[in-house]
């Protein structure tokens, strides 16, 4: 039968033969679970008992849950501090590194290395840094200068930035590399023209470099925002024993989802939280693309 087909028809048969397994994969492992998560979010279910229809009960409960609003706030604090801090740091490093030829490759490796580490392993290292005297590195250093101790992970105000620091640290190298690639894509002739006109470095930075870097900046902002909104590994591993920090002060949305689903086995409520996470990610990305792309 195959022999009687035209070349064009044969190609169609091949294309679908290639796609058969992947299409099944995407249907079963991506689309069905997405629909299922949305369905479960309207049900009441503790994994063992009956699955009963709950309407918008889970969402209503979320709306009235003070812990959820605390968590929602924390999630955005991670985003609002993490994204600008890492963006500015990465740009400053990339801008200067780009102008340097001496040991360029070596310096680049230093900045990129943290990106290749495992978050859980590094969470332990930073946790050790933050311990009180006589264990913690930071407090020991403070102590040797006679300065007062800081309760990093046990403080309700400092625990969140203390957890954010390793997350920013680990992602910085990637952003530096992407920025440097963006800087290199700017045509050299622009800089030469500016130099002939005697424009200052500062003006070149604001009038040429930054506007032409806009696509790179948009990419980094959206990419890192998604990362900070989904922060989990660092939080989970730097506050175990009391996941979520003192008075839930560090708990992000993903940690709340994990605890609701896999500690309390409240699947319906957890699914509703995942739908909220999805909407938050979608909303923030679209908003950023809109604001940053056309000005």
């Amino acid at each position: 039968m195959y022999r009687n087909l035209t070349i064009q028809q044969k190609k169609i048969v091949w294309a679908w033969a290639f796609l058969a397994l992947p299409v099944i994969f995407y249907l079963v492992i991506r689309f069905y679970p997405t629909a299922n998560a949305m369905l479960i979010s309207f049900q009441s279910w503790n994994l063992l008992g009956d699955r009963t229809w709950a309407g918008i009960e889970n969402y209503a409960r979320l709306w009235n849950d003070p812990v959820f609003w605390q968590v929602f706030r924390n999630t955005f604090v991670y985003l609002i501090i993490g994204t600008p801090v890492s963006l500015v740091l990465a740009f400053v490093i990339a801008y200067h590194l780009d102008k340097l030829a001496f040991m360029h490759g070596f310096l680049r490796v230093l900045y990129f290395l943290p990106f290749m580490t495992t978050a859980v392993a590094m969470a332990w290292v930073w946790r050790w840094f933050y311990q009180p005297i006589p264990i913690g590195f930071f407090n020991n250093t403070l102590g040797s200068f006679g300065l007062p101790q800081i309760e990093f992970l046990r403080s309700t105000t400092l625990a969140l930035p203390a957890i954010l620091a390793p997350a920013v640290w680990a992602g910085l190298g990637f952003q530096v590399i992407i920025f440097m690639a963006g800087l290199r894509a700017i045509p050299r002739s622009y800089y030469e023209a500016a130099r002939i006109d005697g424009v200052s470095d500062w003006t070149v930075l604001w009038e040429i470099t930054l506007p032409l870097l806009r696509p790179t900046i948009v990419f980094i902002v959206v990419f890192s925002s998604i990362g900070f909104l989904r922060i989990f590994d660092h939080v989970f591993n730097m506050t175990t024993g009391d996941p979520g920090g003192p008075l839930n002060s560090t708990k992000p949305l993903v940690l709340m989802i994990y605890q609701t689903a896999f500690a309390d086995f409240n699947m319906g409520y957890a699914a509703a939280q995942t739908v909220v996470l999805f909407l938050v990610l979608l909303g923030v990305s679209l908003l950023q693309l809109r604001i940053l792309q056309d000005r």
Partner: peptide, 13 residues
């Protein structure tokens, strides 16, 4: 599927 966060799929998985 790029828009769907992993965390939304873990319960069904």
């Amino acid at each position: 599927t790029l828009m769907i966060p992993t965390e939304m799929l873990v319960i069904p998985w």
